[in-house]
Design a protein around this nucleic acid. Structure first.
Lengths: 316, 316
DNA sequence: TAAAAATACTCCATAGGTATTTTAT
DNA sequence: ATAAAATACCTATGGAGTATTTTTA
């Protein structure tokens, strides 16, 4: 039994006329008669009652007609669905991301993605870079937006998406808040809230080297994993914090942000895609992420008001 | 796109190995590879990621797999359903019947039918013989159990199913209730409850002729269409009634039934099937009806107690 | 190097076309 | 007598088999 049999039967059942049905199927009447006959023999039951003047459905034919239509529709839908998934317009997409990615580009990219491919069922998981590597290997996520410090990721290809500077978050009344740009040397002896060393050893090392080069030695007074925790601690006067520039989309009472003069390595975020497993929707989202990151290296100047707790925009 | 494509794809997707999948499909590996390749080209998207060491589903393939399985299952179910309908084991069956048919054989036949073909959706309509002829012509019923008096039915074939004598229903205290068998002549001058003349003219005529032959002239005191109405009127002392013997499955307080001596034509019930439209379930039910009517010409003797209001059984 | 998929080719089964017959109104 | 389906027969496409090459781990 083939789909063509279903098509032939449905055509005859709808036309109730072999000749017209054959025309609709772009074939001749005799082979159509043969096909119907063969189909009936395979099923072991007559589907059509026919004389030279009259074609009618038998009860079996009536039952078969409904199901045959459904089969044809489902078969077409199956192909269409596969095609759409292949184009990244349908299906499931599970994305892992580190927290800074959301503010840097992911919120914008996801908004555009949903507009382009509303049928894709998106699943988002905030994961560390390390967790993303494992999740990618285990097939639990299709795409990861992770921190990047030149490292490879086994079984995945990693490509840079965004690059933004660190900025300094400090209590509103702090002496350094008066400056528009803060040199690294000015942080000598300052209490600093730092990310956990175990979490990002390469990053901690790079930051340490940069401070050493600038001849500054801040004091690590507290570890905090999330930038929101860091800003909370800054507001409480616990110390200062280095945060990605994209944090400026948030305002936190009692906290101001200032640009740093050159010296620190930038925050690099990358997309990690599993090797040998092309996922069109993932590729689509990566492309949107790159565009979002490129067109908006930081938050637009107008979005940051001078009166805000986070301080003046990077452009002054 | 053919069902074979779905089968091939599902096999490869489940085995994740072309050679094994080909074996399962009872074919060779090269044509299987070609089919999958052609399928992918038709769909415009890769369904399988494959190297010489590794076969895996793409997201499109994963989406397609579920649908493909459903299509195959539905296609099989469509054929199976048609086969079952063809055998009269599934589908819909709408049956018209005259009231006496239910007691004579239809209750028993329907019980057996449901046991044999539980999946058939039965629809029952109590209709007069004349209404059944119209309903058959209009395709509103697939089968009719009607009264039969030698008449033809346009567009339908009519075959006798059961034949039972009339019996006499009379008030419990009536003088004739003392006899085991009542001769027709004894009904001379008796008040008789009769069926409507317009409903069954041939029957009324035949009964009239039978009474005339026996030299009896009962008085038609009341018309009543249903045998239940007749028995109610008998109980009320309005008169006597001629009813099919199968009415003995019912007991009515104040009413007794007695056999009649020969002379009246029997009650003949028949099955009417539309011509040129074979309906296996209908044929099955007719066969069961004939068996039920044949094996049980009247109600079994044990079912009728001597003490019952309806009187002694026919076998006395 | 070995195992597996892809490629190249050959063949035949069968879907479909053409001509004709049968059938029912 | 006519229109429509069935039958008979033929052709050619393409699905499947066989042999071989390519690829990757």
């Amino acid at each position: 039994m083939e789909l063509r049999d279903f098509e032939c039967f449905v055509a005859v059942a709808e036309e109730l006329h072999f000749r017209r049905a054959a025309a609709r199927l772009a074939m001749c009447q005799p082979p159509l008669s043969q096909r119907i006959k063969a189909l009936e023999e395979r099923l072991g039951t007559k589907l059509l009652e026919r004389t030279s003047r009259y074609v009618a459905l038998t009860p079996a034919g009536e039952a078969f007609l409904g199901r045959a239509r459904a089969v044809l529709e489902m078969a077409g839908a199956a192909g269409e669905e596969a095609r759409r998934v292949g184009l990244g317009l349908a299906g499931k997409l599970t994305v892992g991301f580190v927290n800074p990615a959301m503010d840097a580009f992911l919120a914008v990219a996801l908004g555009q993605f949903r507009a382009q491919a509303a049928e894709v069922e998106l699943s988002l998981r905030e994961l560390t870079t390390r967790e993303q590597a494992e999740a990618l290997a285990g097939g639990r996520i299709d795409l990861g937006f992770c921190r990047y410090a030149g490292q490879e990721m086994a079984g995945a290809s990693v490509m840079e998406v965004s690059r933004e500077p660190y900025i300094l978050a400090l209590p509103a009344g702090h002496a350094l808040a008066g400056r528009r740009r803060v040199p690294l040397a000015a942080l000598d002896g300052q209490p600093l809230i730092v990310p956990p060393r175990t979490g990002l050893p390469a990053l901690s090392q790079a930051l340490g080297a940069a401070f050493a080069a600038a001849g500054a030695k801040p004091v690590a007074v507290q570890e905090a994993a999330s930038k929101f925790t860091m800003l909370g601690l800054v507001a409480a006067g616990v110390g200062l914090a280095l945060v990605p520039a994209s944090v400026r989309v948030w305002q936190r009472a009692g906290v101001v942000c200032r640009d740093l003069e050159a010296g620190l390595p930038p925050v690099i975020l990358a997309a990690a895609l599993p090797l040998c497993r092309e996922h069109a929707a993932a590729a689509r989202l990566v492309e949107l992420a790159r565009q979002a990151a490129g067109s908006r290296p930081g938050p637009p100047a107008e979005a940051i008001r001078e009166a805000d707790a986070c301080g003046p925009p990077a452009t002054g």
